[in-house]
Nucleic acid binder design. Sequence first.
DNA 1: TGTGTAAGTAAGTGACTACTTGCATTCTGG
DNA 2: CCAGAATGCAAGTAGTCACTTACTTACACA
Lengths: 208, 208
Amino acid sequence: MNRRDEILAAAAEVFAQHGFRGSTTRRIADAAGVNEITIFRQFGSKEALLREAMQHMTESAGLAELPEIPSDPERELTEWSESFIQHLRLRSSIIRKTMGEIEERPEMSECASSVPIRASNELCKYLVALGRQGWTSEKFEPKTAAAMLMGAIFADAMGRDMMPDVYPQPRAKAAHMYTVLLLRAIGVQNGPRRMTNKQTKRTKQLSA
Amino acid sequence: MNRRDEILAAAAEVFAQHGFRGSTTRRIADAAGVNEITIFRQFGSKEALLREAMQHMTESAGLAELPEIPSDPERELTEWSESFIQHLRLRSSIIRKTMGEIEERPEMSECASSVPIRASNELCKYLVALGRQGWTSEKFEPKTAAAMLMGAIFADAMGRDMMPDVYPQPRAKAAHMYTVLLLRAIGVQNGPRRMTNKQTKRTKQLSA
DNA sequence: TGTGTAAGTAAGTGACTACTTGCATTCTGG
DNA sequence: CCAGAATGCAAGTAGTCACTTACTTACACA
């Protein structure tokens, strides 16, 4: 169904620019190069179309993975952060619109929240592994640390266009800078540092 | 002008719930207990009304201040963070709506960005002072650190309602937890610790 | 008492919106 | 070559939206 996917893509694009109320069937049809009627025949209603477009988007969202066992925290976490911030930046318009619709269309927002929830779990698991493997010298709550890194990345991706002076330069290194700060906060030293595999919980590794 | 302020307040409330397109003059008039016509006579157009309501809001936003010279970083920063997160939480609906309108109504969004810009400058200045006074043991970029703390707070305020499991518990201590993490990231030790007033740049204060 | 001002009532205008109906056209698979 | 499905076109429906016009009411102040 080529036509169907074209309409879904056009709907997502129009929604990203104009939100739900601004996504008129006329605009979506024009953007898809399709007669307005085709939309109603294919999807029944504007709401059904946008719901399907939303699900289609979130399902096709590929997130970077973090290794089960950390071997180079700074490199691994930086790569993950960069892929995450890129993901958010590419979708910043649609995310902002979706967040604005929480009160009026909670189903759509719920569907969109699955991505950050998965990302948070992935990151949390990695941070716990870091602690268990003795990489960290500070006691920390994984959920708080994860929320902090993801929050910084999220705010950067959402707000940099509007307030460029507030965020660190250059934008391409922002994710790395947040990552380094977080690693310091939980007491992980720079660079890959192979340790004894013995799981010494919270080994005090007072620098080298 | 009592009537005028009532209408402005009602407009802000309706906008927070329904966004620009959803804020019909009918709805605003009903919310204000006023005839629809009065709105047009007072403000000329729906757009002018909402613009004025927006400015009215941002002007009346009082932000907590940070001391010029830090004396108890954890306490001072925690208080600031808590006041900031409370400010954002009280306005989360209207902020989400405003963010969703950036593409279509950039003037309104620009006006809203003044608050976080001021907050960021304030925080940055404090972090620089921390470094200059020798509270920190790590080299760090103030802007990055500020963006990280504010980002975490912002994301918490915007997203906790939708994804409560992602953010640290209890919500009342979240701001404090982010603050502690940030202080660790820049190498500030716990508790108030009076130092020589001599401005030793980046004094290595390897614990007590 | 008279006058100006802010507010209300009633009715309507033109544009847009989601969605429908009826019919013609094109394309596809057997 | 032909049935059936997908698509397009023209027209229309009922509703909403921002905004206007014309007129009335209430009240402050001099």
